[in-house]
Structure formats: C-alpha cells, structure tokens
Design a protein around this nucleic acid. Sequence first.
DNA 1: CACTAGTGCAA
DNA 2: TATTGCACTAGTG
Length: 570
Amino acid sequence: MAGGDVATLADAAALGQYLTQIPAGEPVAVESVGDGGPPDPAISAVGLFHPSAGSAQFVCAGPDVAQSADERGRALVAALGGRTLVGHDVKALAEWWLARGGTLPPVEDTAVVAYLLNPARTNYKLEEVCAELLGEGPGIARPGTRGKWIWDLWAMAPRALAEVGLERLYEDVERPLIGVLAEMERHGIRVDQARLGEFSRELEVHLERTTKEIFGLAGEEFNIGSPKQLAYILFEKLKLPVVKRTKTGYSTDADVLEQLALGHELPARIIEHRTLAKLKSTYADALPTLVNPTTGRIHTSFNQLVAATGRLSSSAPNLQNIPVRTELGRRIRAAFVPEAGRRFLAADYSQIELRILAHVSGEESLIEAFRRGEDIHARTASEVFGVPLDAVTPEQRDIAKTTNFSVIYGVTAFGLSRGLDISPKQAQEFLDRFFARHPKVKAYLARTVKEGRERGFVATLLGRRRYLPELRSGNPNLRGFGERMATNAPIQGTAADLVKIAMVRMAAELRAHRLETRMLLQVHDELLFEVPTGEVERLRALATEVMESAVSLDVPLRVDVKVGDDWAAV
DNA sequence: CACTAGTGCAA
DNA sequence: TATTGCACTAGTG
C-alpha cells in the first residue's frame, strides 16, 4: 500500500484483507483509538503490525499489553468500529516510527518479560501487571499512563530478569520465539475443504439417524445437546441410577453414560450422538469458516503468554486439539494437507515428560531404562509387578503406563483408581509399589513440594518459575491443588522450554540453509513441517539432530519422525 | 451480548 | 479426588 492511500477499516474482515496485502515484515502503522493528535510515544498511540494473513500481529505499542495479538487486533477494530476513521499515510507513519530508531518499547517483548516474571498471572491486563511489577496503583488508565507503564516495564526488564536468573531463557528462547511464532501464524496450514464438507454431510446423516433412535428410546423428543433435558430423560423419566452429580444437578458425562450403557440402550446412543455432534460442530463445520480467503489457509494464533507452565496455547482455531485417537476423528486430521509438491513431516519427542522426570529425579532405574532404549512402560510394569520384562502382559503394561502418567500429574490413589477403573485400595498398592521401586522419584516429588512451599515457587530446568501461594494455604483442598501443580509444573514446563529451544533452533537452521521447508504447528511435544519432497530426507536428519540435542540430559532424548501426505498419515 | 456450566478434544 | 489448554451448546441475566 502506497503512502497516502486511505484504508477503510470498518470491520474485522476489512482489516484482515487490508493486512494480507502488505508484504511480510513490513511494519504498518495504524492509528489507535480516540486520539486525533500526532503520534505520541507517551500515549503509545501507534501500533505497528506485522501483517499476519487474516489477523494482525501487533509487534509494537498498542492499546493493551494484556491482550493477545488477535484480541488487540479485534479491540482495535471494535474501537474503530462503525466509523471509517483510519485512513492514514501509512508510509509516513511507518517512517516516523523507524526514524525514532526503535525508541518505542516493543510491547510483545515487554509482555514476554512480564510473562517470564510470573507466568501464572491469570490476567495480563496491563494495569495489573504494572501494579505488581512497578508497585504502582492499579486501575486508572489516564491518557499517557499506559505508554509510561510500558516504558517503565521495558526499562526495568534487564534488572528484573537478572534478579530471577531468566536472562538466558528470555534472550535465547522466548524473545526469538516471538518471530518464529509470527511466521508460523502468517504461513498458515492448508485444509481440504471438500474433504471436510463431505465428512460433515456424512456426520449429518449419522446424526439424523441417531437422533431418531434416541427419541424412540426416550419416548419423546428433546434437546439432546442439553445436559439438563437429557438428565430429566435419563434419571427422572427412565429412572436410571444416578452415578455422579454436578454442582447443579445430575452428571451426564461420558463416564456416567458408559456405566448406564450396561443397563440401557439409550446411553450408548447418546455417546454416539455426542461424538458425532462434537466432530461436526467443533471441527468439520467450524474449520472451513476460518480459511482465509486470500491465502486459502488456516492461520491459528499461538499464544505465548497464556499457560501457567510455559506451554504455548493455540486459538482461533485451536490446532492443538485436532482429533487423533479414533478413526472417525482422524478424518478431521486427514483434511489438513500440504501444498502440491510438498509433504508433511511430523517430529515428536518420545515420552519427553517421563524422560525429564528421570533426569530431574535422578532415578537410576528410569535413567537406565531410557539409556538402553527399553519400552519404559513395560519396564515399569516388570518392576512393579515383579515379573520378567518379557512376561509383562498388555494389561500390566497399560496399568504401568497410566501409573507413569499419573505420577507426573501428582495423582492421588483415588484419582488413579478412577483412571484405572480399580478400587482406591488397589490403586494405593500400585502407587506404593511404584514409589518403592522408584525411591528417587518419590524423594524428588516431596522435595519439589517442600521447596515450593518454602520459596513460594517451583522452577523448570531452565529457571522458568511458577509461583504457588496455594502451597501455604490452610485449606487442604486448595493445598492439594497446589501440590499437584507443584509436581507437574516443573516437568510440563521443562518440556515446554525444551520444545521452544528446538523451535528457535529449527527456524534458524531452516533460514541458514535457505530451505523451503516451513514450520507450521507445534503441538506441545511435536512439530509439524511442510516440506518440499526434495528436502524430506534432509529435514528428517535435521529435525532429529536439532530436537534431540536441544538440551543435554542424563537420559537421551528421542525424536520420532514420520512423513505423510496428510496430517493423519504422519 | 456477556457470562457460566457442562462437556469433550488434544498433549 | 489427575496437569495444561480451547471451544462448543445450552441456559441465564
């Protein structure tokens, strides 16, 4: 867009269209709301966008550091809304900013600092962050205040990070990651809309049939999607046994329905209906509406400031919860496809959290098992059940697998009993045997909780903190929550640190080698790439090498790489 | 239109 | 009475 052009940004769609016309990396200035005067850094009145197809990635200044880039874009549009007031000499504004030599505080970077200083902060409203970090009163956003606060926060960042030993995590990981994520968002991922449309119609047919069966079995028509109406049918009309209650009434969740299904045909049909409705409404019908008309691809937002443990999250749409476990669900995943001449390559860390547990606890039996490349769940089963490795039954392995994961979550015997569908007494026995065989895991968990209580926070291997005031609560319930978070956060968070390091390094490698491969998605322990066919073998080696060497632990990291022509095939 | 509750999808 | 998320529908105000 040439300088002097007037953009009319009356709605989100118009803004999206406008932004997609701008070359990548070229900053674009958009006037903020209600401010007729010249750009004033004290008011932080100018937002600089990196054009991210379909949505705006605010990289500098902006009305509210609290919001995600996506929200800020929407807030801006809303504030402009109805009025066609933008219309600036975009080029002149951009030049104005560049001429200042970067003297405006980069808001994304500042927000990441605030996140690192306390990732568990539940609300990134700028006022609250500043109140806490700068010791200033919250609340009153007088004109000019926000800009000053961003300045102050940015100015204190080096000292604040140094105080808690987070300079490296910031400089080497979180800050470089901002650009990596922006690039991934901007690139987007292709979906085969025809496949989704066809699947949606199939689901519709199934749903109609299931609905009829349900009404027949219930003896009347009702809204199957309403837990309240369903509860009336199941527990009052049909008098089925009440298994579980919610705060407000009878529970009708999948667990409950599965139990009820043993004694009646209806609950099974409800489960089926729920499965189909979920796939149709959340995925098959929703995803095509999010395809950007300009790029023909879906552009998620990767949220860097949301998860209390340091993980990323994904929204609008969430591409970190695309179904994979059932055949039907995989039909959705199979609609994500590479461009012609390219393939998908997925690289995922094998049992990353258990490996981290082995490392941080120093538990020899786990470390040795990983070093030998053994099947870790079978190994656990062998130890806990006291049978030779090759005599472990699939059932025993399953129990061990659930127990392994449960320990990472800080589970209680009661929780494990639910997960394994056994009695709490039996579950307690499993846990006792597990800890007897893994004494250092037990010691590590106890130590972590104790240190968390004494210091007020727990930390990942790279120093990322999670503050847990709950650990000092007199309320046993709340304290229990705190203790489970305390045992889980360092492990989940260390995994997040590690994957982020791998992402930053992968992005650097792709660039350095001038590869055409693009990183598309991160799903916690997995990276998805779109790879020209000619680069596949090179990428396989590169991803394996970079990801496995992201950090050096007492156990090897293992990465599994799969290549395929849709996301269900990798 | 904003909000909560219940539910279910992923790692 | 298992960790971290996001989003759907129903229902309320």
